[in-house]
Nucleic acid binder design. Structure first.
Lengths: 339, 339
DNA sequence: CTGTTAGCGCTTTCAT
DNA sequence: ATGAAAGCGCTAACAG
């Protein structure tokens, strides 16, 4: 790799001059600029960010910490982040936590050691993760720019973007209630973890608002996978009084639930209504097509990236909160309950 | 952030000594080691990789260049890469090309400027992309470690891992032929691009081997999305003599094709057999469940990461090729043709 | 408009 | 076993 000195020598100028033409940090005569550029081209010179970062602290790298990139919600979010950052000359290091607080801390440290200019974090637990919380607060104290997505620290004083998932869940319940359902179940991950909590709260809130009974046996925890959804639905179907509709914590779980119904000959939506969460691409393609609460994952990522960049430029801005909208996408898995 | 000087001062030693205890690059007396470690702990010191990289060239960052992280194949591959690298203390920068050669070059440059120690690349075009090819060859000439996944340069002299997708496609055709199908269609992305080429070649090869007619009108190009698959299947169904079975370039396309059949009342698998490609998680959950050629995406990523790390350590190793297996997963979308 | 000098955080000879 | 000094690629005053 050619260095700034090689270019300087070849162009017959000083390194600073070369630096100036690349950074436009001072006026340079047309003539020398051209000589420099020519020399650079001939040597295939690209300024090393490593070198400049040592003085400027600008690596144009940010760290993105998510649960698991294989989850479509995460990968859409990641793409939103990447697109927005890349346009501004930034690139990102992505690490997965699998919801493990230990790993979350480790991952944050490893990323930080690379001198990133900021973090975008989807916290796995909200306020229930002493280890990671402590570390993140420390970063914040060092004024490291951080934008949170989905969850956030138990602290209103940070930048974050949410999707009003709680409202989304409530919308879904309202819709089902409007259709005439009374026994509405919830299949829901671990309620106290990650994104599940808002969704669960929204469900409860709306059940109460609609004066519908909140039966513990209709609220079942599950893995947040299709297998988890399948098992959970079987448990619900085994009940003496199964629900006539269920809201699920994500689309994969919903699809698992559909499979369970299919296996048992329970027809959707005639005998069972199902609502998913996230609106992953496949949701439109299940047969019947899945009614679901759409999460603007890409937009959330894009927005978080925007906020982060802003904070990098103006560290003293007041903290910013953005609430995007979750919206119910009605398709074919929902209908009035059987008479 | 505390620097190595802060730690040295606090421990009453020289910076070199601190460096030595962290890098175990020379013997240090037990006593001073402990003092240094204590000082480091008190100051929350973590060696900055940026600083050391300037001399060692070791950033412990590698660049992963894929088409689109939102594609499940890519995200599984990425996770395989990340897990393997992270265990060895590496982290990765991920960028998307969307199959655009211009963007591919740009992305490679941006990543390189960050001093990455190597690349893992899933080339969008194989040997038909002068711009990107030229740049990649240049990297190779500079002895930058690169591992290719899926496709590779038109050059046997590089490290790469494939999935024998061509064999997988052939397997699928053989299976359909064995079932009695003669008119087997192929819905296939742009045949000359990215992963599609191997799959298309495998299809043709097996059609010929089975002495089946290779009809141009049964091979249709499409977007590699479910919408693309849906449209393509409609075109096939509009034919005077539609096929009785189709192989598709990926599962999303297959699912789109299923939707098209469903809309037209063509029953699967009785009137139409469909085979997907990739075995994304959702494939097991469509109704009926999708028969598909499984790609070991996670393993391919993991293997590529392994190869890359090996090359970083031993640049003079002979180039290595790994061929993982694609395997047909028979589920419920395939059956003998109608009589 | 351009050059000189020092320094960013760390490693690495070379001494001791 | 430890320290001093130079240097990695670049930027940022400070001169001129």
């Amino acid at each position: 790799m050619a260095t700034i000195y090689d270019v300087a020598q070849r162009a017959g100028v000083s390194p600073s001059t070369v630096s100036r033409v690349f950074n436009k940090t001072a006026a340079i005569s047309q003539a020398t600029r051209e000589r420099v550029l020519a020399a650079a081209r001939e040597l295939d010179y690209q300024p090393s960010i490593l070198g400049s970062a040592l003085t400027t602290k600008q690596t144009f790298i940010i760290g993105l910490v998510i649960t698991d990139i294989r989850n479509p919600y995460s990968s859409f979010l990641a793409r939103g982040v990447q697109d927005t950052l890349f346009k501004e000359g930034y690139v990102c290091i992505i690490c997965n936590t699998d919801g493990d607080p230990r790993r979350e801390v480790h991952v944050l440290q490893e990323i930080r050691r690379r001198g990133v200019n900021g973090f975008i974090i989807t916290p796995s637990f909200a306020g229930r993760n002493p280890e990671a919380d402590r570390y993140i607060r420390q970063l914040l104290a060092h004024r490291v720019p951080i934008a949170f997505v989905g969850n956030r620290l138990d602290d209103p004083n940070v930048d974050y973007v949410t999707s009003r998932a709680q409202d989304g869940a409530a919308q879904a319940v309202n819709y089902l209630a409007g259709l005439g359902h009374r026994a509405i179940g919830f299949i829901g991950g671990r309620y106290t973890q990650g994104v599940a909590v808002g969704r669960w709260l929204g469900y409860q809130e709306a059940m109460i608002a609609n004066r519908l009974p909140l039966c513990p046996e209709l609220m079942v925890e599950s893995d947040t996978t299709s297998e988890g959804g399948e098992q959970a639905m079987h448990r619900l179907l085994d009940l003496p009084n199964p629900p006539s509709a269920v809201l699920t914590v994500n689309d994969l779980v919903a699809i698992g639930a559909m499979v369970a119904c299919h296996r048992r000959g329970v027809s959707i939506p005639d005998q069972m209504s199902i609502v998913g969460f996230d609106n992953i691409p496949i949701a439109a393609l299940t047969i019947p097509a899945l009614t679901t609460v759409a999460q603007p994952a890409y937009e959330m990522g894009a927005k978080a990236a925007e906020m982060l960049l802003r904070r990098c430029q103006q560290p003293d801005l007041p903290p910013q909160q953005v609430h995007l909208r979750s919206s119910l996408v009605v398709r074919q898995t929902t209908a009035p309950p059987p008479a």
